[in-house]
Nucleic acid binder design. Sequence first.
DNA 1: ACCTCATTACGAAATATTTCGTAGAACTTC
DNA 2: GAAGTTCTACGAAATATTTCGTAATGAGGT
Lengths: 130, 130
Amino acid sequence: MSKSTPTDAELEVLNVLWTKGPSTVREINEMLSREKEVGYTTTLKIMQIMTVKGLLERDESSRTHVYKPLMKESDTQRTMMDKLLNSAFGGSASKLVMQALGNNKTTKAELDEIRKFLDDQLENKKGERE
Amino acid sequence: MSKSTPTDAELEVLNVLWTKGPSTVREINEMLSREKEVGYTTTLKIMQIMTVKGLLERDESSRTHVYKPLMKESDTQRTMMDKLLNSAFGGSASKLVMQALGNNKTTKAELDEIRKFLDDQLENKKGERE
DNA sequence: ACCTCATTACGAAATATTTCGTAGAACTTC
DNA sequence: GAAGTTCTACGAAATATTTCGTAATGAGGT
């Protein structure tokens, strides 16, 4: 059994929870409403389903439930990355990376940061076969 | 209007077409069957829908139709990348790249290749504001 | 012409996801 | 404590995707 990736609607909820911390349905719904029209019960339902799926946990001690994510943002990012890597890039991380950095508007600061990161990675591979 | 990404089943078809070139339904279905059980008419239906959507074009001059993709692999990769970037990485390419290269088993050769690519990118940014 | 086989067309079932209406419970206010 | 508000639960409709059965068509062989 491999990890499953959240759906689009689920990911929107998770993004709010990761940046704002544990939240109520109303708080999530208000954040999402800034981007697009979405009914309160729609958000509620999504979050209830996510709870059943084990994506969220909720504190029911007060009438207004407070939800929090059960998975770390970075873990979810990795799972989604891996899926994209395998489904669209034939497993080649370098192709994916070059596509990400390619024609677009990555800033010099970002490129520098990545280079630094890359140097670290290469440093760790010192003893390995060429 | 932003570009839409192919579904999972559609992407599997596209991957075969990109590597094998224009193909018949049977050829695609045989390739897919190596990975998982999938009925012939299932593959046929997916490809017919893709044709209606404008993802594929087909040559009907012989009874056995020959399909080919209408979008380049790299364009599709970019579209899917952008979607992941925005939906899961808050638009930060560097976070995505570091996640892609992070704990996993990217080879030294790949890392070297990326570094070379990165140096080119930085070279192109020479005149820009720090 | 007849039979067989491969192919396409079509519709519909099965599954997954997203959306929302309605009901009832719990709290607030007057 | 009645009226109004906010919340959860639940079911179901709407939409999207995937799967496949059946029928019709065409091609090839006998």
